[in-house]
Design a protein around this nucleic acid. Structure first.
Length: 109
DNA sequence: TGAGTGACTGTAA
DNA sequence: CTTACAGCCACTC
């Protein structure tokens, strides 16, 4: 019962859309809210096939590193977008998770 | 149908 | 401490 794969994608889209301005979240957090915390890798796939309207630049790995920046077409674009939103970066090139980490809540559809 | 890959994470050595 | 391996789920060849 219930579709699984498609539903997972749909959930990912909704979660990413809920990311507030100037905030970021992690793949694991999204996957967990989607019901499969172990599917962090699949979250990346879902975002990869998502619409351009999706703020995928606010999605980073658990370290805050912009691992998906290469998929934006320009490696600097992701960082520029986040900086434009007021997101601070550490010397490591990672997002300041302590200040900008946003924990997604239940989808609640 | 089966094997390989990937925008991740966690544990082991 | 750093490096390697395995697990997880969905997609493509």
């Amino acid at each position: 019962m219930k579709k699984n794969n498609q539903d997972f994608f749909d959930r990912v889209y909704k979660v990413v859309e809920q990311i507030p301005y100037g905030k970021v979240t992690t793949y694991g957090a999204i996957a967990e809210v989607c019901g499969i915390k172990s599917a962090a890798r699949t979250v990346g796939w879902a975002i990869n096939g998502a619409s351009s309207e999706l703020p995928c630049h606010r999605v980073v790995n658990r370290f805050g590193a912009l691992t998906g920046k290469v998929h934006f077409g320009d490696p600097n674009l992701m960082e520029e977008l986040l900086r434009a939103e007021g997101v601070e970066f550490l010397e490591d090139g990672c997002v300041d998770m302590e200040k900008h980490l946003w924990k997604p809540k239940s989808i609640n559809n």
